[in-house]
């Protein structure tokens, strides 16, 4: 058993499952957005605005952003633990990635809720 303090859940099975569940949510969200584009004859600002005013779309978008956060962290953590051998540098990069991901998430919420 290899201990890990910085992985998403500290457990390989759970990290693996979260990454896959988040991937499915992102795939469904992508299809949903493309489906909207496909089914809308005239796409303009007003159409997008109206689309994102729906509470369901807002919640689904936030869920997708949360999934992206989860998915990206598991992936970035894997890449960093593969390639960055210096523990100090790795921890610094991990903290930077976490900060960046949280900022992206907050910005996503701010955008969605401003509609």
């Amino acid at each position: 058993m290899v201990r890990s303090a910085t992985s998403l859940t500290g457990n390989g099975v759970r990290d693996w499952l979260w990454q896959r569940v988040s991937a499915v949510i992102l795939a469904v969200y992508t299809l949903f957005i493309f489906g909207f584009i496909w089914c809308t004859p005239q796409l303009d600002y007003a159409t997008w605005f109206q689309f994102f005013q729906g509470i369901g779309v807002k919640l689904f978008t936030i869920l997708a952003a949360l999934s992206l956060l989860t998915h990206a962290w598991v992936g970035m953590w894997t890449i960093l633990t593969d390639y960055v051998k210096s523990a100090r540098l790795r921890l610094t990069l991990e903290v930077l990635v976490i900060i960046a991901l949280f900022l992206y998430f907050l910005v996503a919420i701010a955008i969605v809720w401003s509609v």
Binding site: M1, V2, R3, S4, S7, G10, N11, G12, V13, D15, W16, T78, T81, D82
Partner: peptide
């Protein structure tokens, strides 16, 4: 199985 649940032993396989 319990000895293999960590994020590295098995799950580092890509």
């Amino acid at each position: 199985l319990e000895a293999l649940t960590d994020p590295f032993s098995v799950f580092r396989c890509r």
